[in-house]
Each structure stands twice: as C-alpha cells, then as structure tokens.
Computed example of a mutant assay.
Amino acid sequence: MPHTCAVPLRWADMDLLGHVNNVTYLDYLAEARASFLADLDTGPGRVAGHRIDFAAPLVFGRRPALVDTWVADVDGPSLTLAHEVRDETPDGSVTHLRAETTLVLAQEPDHTLRARLEDHRDDAHPWREVRGARRPGRHHLPLHVRGSDVGADGLVRDDAVVEFFQESRILYFMDLHERGQDWGRVVVARTDVTLAGEVRPRAAAYDVQAWVAHVGEKSFTVRSDLRDPDAGDAVLATGLVVLVGFDLETQRPVALTGQQRERLLAELA
C-alpha cells in the first residue's frame, strides 16, 4: 500500500493559466516525502534527481491534493521513490502528476531499515526517454541565489534549482517571441532534473544556460545547465523540459503554431 499525504492547495500555488505551477508540485512531493521518510526513520537524504510527468492540470479547489508515495528501488544508499498526485472528485479519481525522486541517504540502510523499505516497494512508473542533445547554450542567465533558495542544510534546495531553470526558460522565450507573432500558449508536460553537485549560496552569480534541444509537431524540448563559472564551468545540475502547445478553451494539447515552430526550428540551426 502506498503512503498517502494530503496537501492543502493555496491560491499562491497557481500560475497565470490557473493551474498549479509546475515548480510548486515539488513542494507537494517534498511534503509527502518528508512524511513518508519520517514514518520509516530513514535519516536525512539528499535529492539527486527528479523525473516528473504532468498528466492533467490541477486547478484551485477546496479539496487537498493527495500524494501517494512508495519505494521504486533501493540500491546501496540510493533510494528511489515513486509518487502520484491525484484528486478524488465526485466523478472519480483523477491523476494529475506522476513522479520519481532519487535520494542519496546519509547512511546506507541496514538490514532492518531495508526490510521496512521493501515492505513499501511497488512497481516503478514507466518512463519514455526524452530527446534532447547537449549543445552550446543559446541563452545565458546570471543567477544570484537568494536566502529563500537555501535549505536547512545550507545548500540550495532542489525545487529552487528547478525554479532557476524555469526562470531562464521564460526569459529565453521572451527573447524568442517577437511582438505581433502568433506564439500560442505552452505548458510543461515533462521535467527531468539531475543534481550533479552541491549548489551553495554565494555572492557571485551562477550561469544558467538554456537551448532548444528538440522540436516536434505538438511539443518541443528545452535543455538547461546550471554551471559554476568559478569552477571551470562545472555543471552542477541539468534539466530537460518538454513543453506542449495548449488550448485554454478545451484544456487540451494542440499543435504548435506555424510561427512558434519556425522560430524554434531556427534555434536548432
């Protein structure tokens, strides 16, 4: 049986489309993860990566979001948790998000803890590979860490890193979209983030790079790097985000507009 955590929605969780912002879901996962790990007494762990599939928009309401959590894999100190965010509506259960979070525990589970973790094991989500080659960054954002980005361990939180990528991506789009173009609306359908190193607060800016890595008929992929210019341009985190065209009236994916696709394809040249 999965562990279920009820997370009340807040109006501040919403984006401009009236949906829960894609970064805010990480708050929900963190709440559920903390509750799950506290019950098992695993000790502290560091987030090493996320894979997130956005299945359906979640809009503001009085019911809390329900986050199911279970163990997908245990390998030494590495613990992979699977999540599902759902809403129990009068018409039945609706899944809004499926996710997988990889943690590196401070201590490798002993026999007793491993047995408790195995009691909560279930099938992992199936994941399709996201296409998107590494290329030189087309957009550079000097990113200064704020105090609110830092967790209790003194390091920049994983959700803040995802927000850095979002900030860079939005500014990149603003540069691509020229006034008068039929750009259309897009929403995030998939996010993969890998945290390769520790991101520490400091006065100097980090370099967040972004570029278009793949363009399809209805979707495109933006790849991002968080780099440290003061450490030989070391890559501290990477992100792959799949975005799809979206129709507000039908609340369904649609094909990218001609101008959208033409401009995005130019970024691949």
Rank of each mutant, 00 (worst) to 15 (best):
residue 250 T to V: 01
residue 40 L to A: 12
residue 72 A to D: 10
residue 45 G to P: 11
residue 266 A to K: 05
residue 36 F to G: 01
residue 75 D to A: 15
residue 189 A to Q: 02
residue 20 V to I: 15
residue 153 D to I: 07
residue 205 A to L: 10
residue 28 Y to G: 02
residue 229 P to T: 10
residue 32 A to P: 07
residue 267 E to G: 05
residue 258 G to V: 13
residue 249 E to F: 00
residue 118 E to S: 12
residue 220 F to L: 13
residue 263 R to A: 14
residue 77 P to R: 13
residue 229 P to S: 09
residue 196 A to E: 13
residue 192 D to L: 03
residue 111 H to P: 00
residue 34 A to T: 15
residue 158 D to F: 13
residue 106 A to Q: 05
residue 52 I to P: 01
residue 127 W to N: 00
residue 228 D to A: 10
residue 13 D to P: 06
residue 4 T to W: 11
residue 137 G to H: 08
residue 17 L to K: 00
residue 191 T to S: 01
residue 37 L to D: 02
residue 259 Q to R: 05
residue 118 E to F: 07
residue 233 D to M: 14
residue 139 H to K: 06
residue 102 T to C: 05
residue 16 L to N: 03
residue 2 P to N: 04
residue 226 L to M: 14
residue 80 T to F: 06
residue 130 V to Q: 10
residue 38 A to R: 14
residue 23 V to L: 01
residue 55 A to K: 09
residue 202 R to T: 13
residue 227 R to K: 14
residue 244 V to N: 01
residue 5 C to E: 14
residue 53 D to K: 02
residue 84 E to L: 03
residue 104 V to H: 09
residue 240 L to H: 11
residue 181 Q to G: 02
residue 125 H to G: 03
residue 204 A to W: 04
residue 67 V to E: 09
residue 254 V to N: 01
residue 162 V to N: 13
residue 215 V to S: 10
residue 152 A to K: 06
residue 257 T to R: 05
residue 202 R to N: 11
residue 252 R to Q: 13
residue 261 R to T: 04
residue 154 G to R: 10
residue 39 D to T: 11
residue 124 A to T: 08
residue 85 V to P: 00
residue 195 L to C: 10
residue 241 V to C: 07
residue 82 A to N: 09
residue 186 V to I: 14
residue 262 E to Y: 09
residue 22 N to I: 03
residue 199 V to N: 07
residue 225 D to G: 07
residue 268 L to H: 05
residue 258 G to F: 08
residue 231 A to F: 10
residue 8 P to E: 07
residue 141 L to V: 05
residue 258 G to E: 14
residue 48 A to F: 03
residue 2 P to Q: 05
residue 153 D to T: 14
residue 181 Q to N: 01
residue 93 S to P: 00
residue 35 S to W: 01
residue 185 R to Q: 01
residue 173 F to S: 00
residue 83 H to V: 11
residue 41 D to T: 14
residue 129 E to C: 00
residue 183 W to Y: 07
residue 183 W to K: 08
residue 117 L to G: 11
residue 102 T to W: 06
residue 31 E to K: 02
residue 215 V to L: 05
residue 172 Y to G: 08
residue 233 D to R: 12
residue 183 W to M: 06
residue 1 M to W: 13
residue 7 V to R: 03
residue 262 E to A: 15
residue 197 G to V: 00
residue 120 H to K: 12
residue 249 E to Q: 12
residue 248 L to C: 02
residue 130 V to A: 13
residue 90 P to C: 10
residue 45 G to I: 06
residue 83 H to D: 05
residue 78 S to P: 00
residue 230 D to F: 14
residue 110 D to K: 06
residue 85 V to T: 12
residue 138 R to V: 11
residue 197 G to T: 02
residue 4 T to A: 11
residue 265 L to T: 15
residue 142 P to D: 13
residue 87 D to A: 13
residue 113 L to Y: 11
residue 96 H to S: 06
residue 180 G to V: 04
